[in-house]
Simulated scan of single mutants.
Amino acid sequence: MLNTLNETRLPVHAQVLDWLAPQQQAMQDLLQKVVNIESGSRNEAGVTAVAHALAERLQAAGVPVQFEPVPGYGVLLHAQVNPAEGAAADGAPIILMGHMDTVFPDGTVAKRPYREEAGRAYGPGVADMKSGLVLNVFVAEAFARSGGLKAPLHLFFSCDEEIGSPATRDLIMARVRGARAVFNAEPGRVSGNVVTSRKGSMVVEFEVQGVAAHAGINHAAGASAIEALARKTLALHALTDPATGVTCNVGVVQGGIVPNMVAPHARAEVDLRFTADTNPDELLERVRAIVEEESVPRTQGRITTTRRSLPMKPTPDYLLALYQQGARSLGFEVQGEFTGGAADSGLTASVGVPTLCATGPVGGHPHTEREYCELSSFVPRAQAVALAVLAHP
Results as ranks from 00 to 15, higher is better:
Ser309Ala: 05
Ser309Asn: 07
Pro311Gly: 02
Met312Cys: 02
Pro314Lys: 02
Pro314Leu: 01
Asp317Ala: 13
Tyr318Glu: 11
Tyr318Lys: 09
Tyr318Ala: 07
Tyr318Ser: 08
Leu319Met: 03
Leu319Gln: 08
Leu320Met: 02
Leu320Tyr: 05
Leu320Thr: 06
Ala321Asn: 12
Ala321Trp: 04
Tyr323Asp: 03
Tyr323Gln: 04
Gln324Thr: 05
Gln325His: 11
Gln325Ala: 06
Gly326Tyr: 02
Gly326Pro: 01
Gly326Cys: 00
Ala327Val: 04
Arg328Asn: 08
Ser329Pro: 00
Leu330Asn: 11
Gly331Asn: 15
Gly331Val: 11
Gly331Lys: 14
Phe332Val: 04
Glu333Cys: 00
Glu333Phe: 06
Glu333Arg: 14
Val334Ala: 09
Gln335Asp: 14
Gln335His: 14
Gly336Ser: 11
Gly336Tyr: 09
Gly336Val: 08
Gly336Met: 07
Glu337Leu: 06
Glu337His: 12
Phe338Ile: 00
Gly340Trp: 12
Gly340His: 15
Gly340Phe: 11
Gly340Ile: 13
Gly341Ala: 14
Gly341Phe: 04
Gly341Tyr: 06
Ala342Trp: 09
Ala342Lys: 13
Ala343Thr: 14
Asp344Thr: 03
Asp344Trp: 02
Asp344Leu: 01
Asp344Met: 01
Asp344His: 04
Asp344Asn: 13
Ser345Asn: 11
Gly346Asn: 05
Gly346Arg: 09
Gly346Glu: 03
Leu347Val: 00
Thr348Asp: 00
Ala349Trp: 04
Ser350Ile: 00
Ser350Gly: 00
Val351Phe: 05
Val351His: 11
Val351Pro: 07
Val351Gln: 10
Val351Met: 05
Gly352Cys: 05
Val353Gly: 10
Thr355Cys: 01
Thr355Glu: 03
Thr355Ser: 02
Leu356Arg: 15
Leu356Asp: 13
Leu356Thr: 14
Leu356Ile: 11
Cys357Lys: 11
Cys357Thr: 08
Ala358Met: 03
Thr359Arg: 09
Gly360Met: 03
Gly360Gln: 06
Pro361Gln: 14
Pro361Cys: 12
Val362Gly: 10
Val362Leu: 09
Gly363Arg: 10
Gly364Met: 06
Gly364Leu: 05
His365Ser: 10
His365Leu: 03
His365Thr: 04
Thr368Trp: 08
Thr368Gly: 10
Thr368Tyr: 10
